[in-house]
Design a protein around this nucleic acid. Sequence first.
DNA 1: CGGGAACTTGATAGAGCTCAAGCGTGGTGG
DNA 2: CCACCACGCTTGAGCTCTATCAAGTTCCCG
Lengths: 276, 276
Amino acid sequence: MSTLQVTEFRSAVPHAAVSAATMPGWQRQGKLWSNLKEVCDLLRIPVSARVNSDEFQFQHMQFKTGQRIHTIGQPFDMLYIVYSGFLKSVMIDETGSEQVLGFPMKGDMFGIDGIHSRQYSTETVALSNCEVILVPFKIFSSLGRTHSEMEAAIYGVMSRELVREQAMVGTLGSLSAEARVARFLVFLSERFTDMGYSGKQFNLRMTRQEIGNYLGLTLETVSRTFSAFNAIGLISVDQRAVVLNDVQALRTLRRLPPSQSRSKQRPAASRQLSAA
Amino acid sequence: MSTLQVTEFRSAVPHAAVSAATMPGWQRQGKLWSNLKEVCDLLRIPVSARVNSDEFQFQHMQFKTGQRIHTIGQPFDMLYIVYSGFLKSVMIDETGSEQVLGFPMKGDMFGIDGIHSRQYSTETVALSNCEVILVPFKIFSSLGRTHSEMEAAIYGVMSRELVREQAMVGTLGSLSAEARVARFLVFLSERFTDMGYSGKQFNLRMTRQEIGNYLGLTLETVSRTFSAFNAIGLISVDQRAVVLNDVQALRTLRRLPPSQSRSKQRPAASRQLSAA
DNA sequence: CGGGAACTTGATAGAGCTCAAGCGTGGTGG
DNA sequence: CCACCACGCTTGAGCTCTATCAAGTTCCCG
């Protein structure tokens, strides 16, 4: 069962900078910079040609696996955009337990939670060697003033994050363990596709523990669910290597053996309270 | 057991407009307006005196119980701020099930989810007669440009919502049913206190169904948990009327009868990845 | 006063957690 | 270069929590 090979990543990673990971200069600051257009492209924000791309330069910074980009309570002054690599964002509750909130990857912005209280409420850790673009919040927000088209984009990015969290709440609140895991795989598949990698086969960058924590499950349940999916041919798993054999089935999966629909509160609160 | 009386609300509601609910003019638009200062106060945003409060006037709109303020898919052009009353925001997943995302109340902004895709991804329904301030998004964002101090405030409000959703994910992902219900009560208590009402006793504005949906539980579990809290004197409940007898205990509650600490993933995923 | 929604309570079952043991894999030191 | 060790993963057994199904009661509205 350990013959499964997933190699897409080694060959597909498109940024030359990553190879620098093994070189002495790795992690030195100030080596790479991006202009505004590059940042907007990364964020999937439309840029008008009128913007002077070179008016601002944004510094890159490289992190090794396990390093923290920012920590809880640290004063906020920076937003971050993932240029390459994989990370996890976690919150620590009052009992000291971690709660994984997300896995930022290429094109994702993180650190937004710090704006409100002027200090980060989460911490973000590199799950692989990473390259992150530093965006000083003051500069970012001033772009909204000077380039009015940028303004909607900024709000849009923040709104997008909010919608994503809301979807997460919906997932945690109503789906079975199997459905959560299935959706998680589809989510990864779509992200990888967006990034130009294969959406069919990839390597997980996080542990079962982290996946389970993110999905509100234990690592054992995640492991068992992977095994179950594997057993019926939905996917092929071997450790971190995953192949999705039927993405559509994963997308709509509710429960495995007896697919009893528990649509419970369907006809709940939307019609008897009809707007007069 | 039905002798419990909670009357704080009837007497405490401070806005005269509510009494208009029973009058013919109710729900007619354009009756009340707020200036910028009033809006900022409501949002708990610091306003500098330099801002000309009367430069902008924001229209109020009144809704009766059950009416929708906005619906899913409706084109986005407006943000909303609750001036009075209670609402719920819900998402509908692909199977048609509702997912309650929150209960906006006085001072809360909603509709933010619509910015990203230019249409609302949620709908918001009045749980009581409500008065809502309409804030055209274009005007709101232009305030960020003209009054630069407003800008941070706007981002702050959006960030606050994101943090709130993240906390919700944490709650759903890791707490027992009892702990979720307890936190929910504490959450309400704090909101009511903020609004100037009693944080010790209040009336729930939502059904057990809605609470359960919000917390990822069934209505039966919510009901049983209320009863259990009632039985040990933590709270007193009778239908929608609630008295919190020990807020601190609710705040830290993890589990009820045998308070065995199972701090599970305590020493889990934060040390082996220490930043070199 | 009737009907329906909301709420409570009980009985039962099953999904997922906990505890526990074993294995594979990758990194490290001898 | 190989052996060891630790961490991550898998799998099993048992048990608990919470969902589900089912009445029955209360409250609110017409």
